[in-house]
Design a protein around this nucleic acid. Sequence first.
DNA 1: ATAACGCTTCGGCTGCGGCCGAAGCGTTAT
DNA 2: ATAACGCTTCGGCCGCAGCCGAAGCGTTAT
Lengths: 232, 232
Amino acid sequence: MAPFVSGMALAEIAALMGDVARANILSALMDGRALTASELAWHGGVSAQTTSGHLARLSEARLIAMTKQGRHRYYRLASSEVAQAIETLMAVASSGPKRHRPVGPKDEALRRARTCYDHLAGRLGIALADALTLQDYLVLSDGAGALTEKGQRFLCAFGIELEEGHRSKRTLCRTCLDWSERRPHLAGRLGAALCTKMFDLGWVERVRDSRALAITTKGRGGLRSTFGIEIE
Amino acid sequence: MAPFVSGMALAEIAALMGDVARANILSALMDGRALTASELAWHGGVSAQTTSGHLARLSEARLIAMTKQGRHRYYRLASSEVAQAIETLMAVASSGPKRHRPVGPKDEALRRARTCYDHLAGRLGIALADALTLQDYLVLSDGAGALTEKGQRFLCAFGIELEEGHRSKRTLCRTCLDWSERRPHLAGRLGAALCTKMFDLGWVERVRDSRALAITTKGRGGLRSTFGIEIE
DNA sequence: ATAACGCTTCGGCTGCGGCCGAAGCGTTAT
DNA sequence: ATAACGCTTCGGCCGCAGCCGAAGCGTTAT
């Protein structure tokens, strides 16, 4: 008899991601925010009823989680593990044969800057990782990164607190393969903190109905003076 | 209009993995070997014709690669990236709600020791990583590992050559999340070398029609004396 | 109270995709 | 040469799963 055991489990999860509507829903949730069912219906490109069914199935499989709030229901990815699985799949997908890849303006915006779960990705994410490495603030080796003394002082001066969550088991800094740039960007607590800071400083803003980020004028200046980064 | 762009690509790849027959085929290929179409048909649990169709689709998407040899056609995973994507998905799958998980004897064998693409996984893989770490041969941090001086000498004495492939861009040592143990085991060049050595020494043997490995009597002794490992 | 809204459940339609039998092609054995 | 073998292609069947309209339930607005 064939070893159906692990194949079945793999197929179940993959099949859930293998439907265009559901894939679009998951893709929309990849920015780490929680979205309402109606918003997800829009992203999925299907009716509310259909979406409801999809969301139920994704919830049951623990790929997403739900919170009720008033008459809304907010859905989010269940864990960073799920996010990582999706990102890894996207990396494989984008490395595949060049299909009809229309590369519209939306796609270009995503490639410039976007959120990846809770951290920054796209050219911006890559540039940040490069800048920190180049200045000897960070040493990247394989899948992980370690802050130097110099880097810790720099980040502290920049207003990023990393010690608070020290008891947290979450990795300080790991890399995450960027599907558009095909190179690793920064994830982990450091990646999340950088992302949050950029928002707080008003350097980046979310683009409506997209995971893409817009770099503000203030952000353009700040990125140049603080990190020596020039996007575009 | 909804951003179908990246969702489509994700769905295409995931859908390929989302069929039970194909998932079983990919799962069988996860041990890193190249298998013939007929062998894969057996693993997939479907007829040769059906399998042929599946293999064609997987090849076209560059998830697997093929080599002709006589009247056989050998299929293998196209890259370690694909293997990693599958392993990550399996991790998510096995962390999901406890479905009807029969956990047969075959499953138990897989959990004890198996190959994961080109390195060792299961309790054996975990034990090896733990042993090397405990002896200060290896320092694991986040997703990567670095050999200590002591570790290099030890491995050298054990007969593992790591310098030869130095020009190779492949990571020396990274971790790979073990879906059955839910903890990282060793991958990268080091993981592959350890695995190869175990085979060469006759410490482990492949189990027919499975990714599972059997630990030989000689292996049991060697693992105890060399690494202080006791499996089971 | 009544209406609007957000979401889900139910029922029925439809099409895609997985499946196999039959047949064809190239390679290897005898 | 002939047969056996490994694999693929073609054609047709069939079931599942995705889709929407209609209806129901709970919450919020007026």
